[in-house]
C-alpha cells in the first residue's frame, strides 16, 4: 500500500480542475455537475463550491447512480453492486453537463453514465472531469478535464478515500 496523494494535493487537483472548467466555459452559463456515485458525487460537490467561490454565478450539482447501466451487471458475482438513488433535481436538457468521477480507468463506468444520462434528457454538451487518469482504457473514452495523469501497474488499484465517506482523505495504490 502506497500513498500517492495526500489531502492537500487532492485539494490542489480540484482547484486545477476548476480552473480548466472556467477556462473552457468563458460564460460558465448553465453548468451542471453530475457526480458518478459514490466518490464522484463528493468531488462534484466540492467542485461546485470552488466554482461558486470563484464567482461563477450558478452551478447545479447532482449525483448519478450507474449500477443499472453497467455492462458487467450479470458477471459481478461477489462484487454485487448496491443500487443507489440518482439525485439530479435540475433539468439536464440543453445544459452543459460535466460528469465527475474520481479515477478514469477502463472507461466502462463513464460509458454506463453516458447511457444513464441519455435516459434522463439531452444535454447540449457532456464533458468528463476526473481527479486521476490512470490509463488502461478498454473503450474509446477520454476525459476533458484531468486533475493528474498517473502511470500505474495493471495489477494495482487506485483507491481514493474522501473524508465525507471514508473518514480519511488520501489516494492510495493497493
Amino acid at each position: 500500500m502506497e500513498v500517492i496523494l495526500k489531502e492537500h494535493q487532492i485539494s490542489q487537483l480540484l482547484e486545477h480542475l476548476a480552473s480548466q472548467i472556467i477556462d473552457t466555459n468563458p460564460d460558465c452559463a448553465s453548468i451542471g455537475l453530475v457526480g458518478i456515485r459514490s466518490r464522484g458525487e463528493i468531488l462534484a460537490q466540492r467542485l461546485q463550491h470552488i466554482l461558486l467561490d470563484r464567482g461563477v454565478p450558478e452551478v447545479e450539482c447532482g449525483a448519478l447512480d450507474t449500477t443499472l447501466y453497467r455492462d458487467d451487471i450479470n458477471q459481478m458475482g461477489t462484487h454485487q453492486p448496491t443500487v443507489q438513488t440518482t439525485d439530479i433535481d435540475f433539468n439536464i436538457d440543453d445544459r452543459v453537463i460535466i460528469l465527475v468521477d474520481d479515477v478514469l480507468n477502463t472507461g466502462r463506468s463513464v460509458r454506463a453514465a453516458l447511457d444513464a444520462l441519455t435516459d434522463l434528457g439531452r444535454p447540449s454538451v457532456i464533458r468528463l472531469a476526473v481527479l486521476l487518469d490512470r490509463g488502461s482504457r478498454e473503450l474509446p473514452i477520454g476525459a476533458d478535464y484531468i486533475g493528474k495523469k498517473i502511470e500505474v501497474p495493471h495489477d494495482k488499484t487506485v483507491q481514493v478515500y474522501l473524508n465525507d465517506m471514508d473518514e480519511r482523505e488520501e489516494v492510495v495504490l493497493e
Binding site: I42, Q48, A63, Q84, M165
Partner: peptide
Amino acid sequence: KRSVKTTTKNTPKFI
C-alpha cells in the same frame, strides 16, 4: 447554494 445534500456514507457491503 452551498448547502450540500447528505452524502452516502461508506456502509459495509451487503450481499
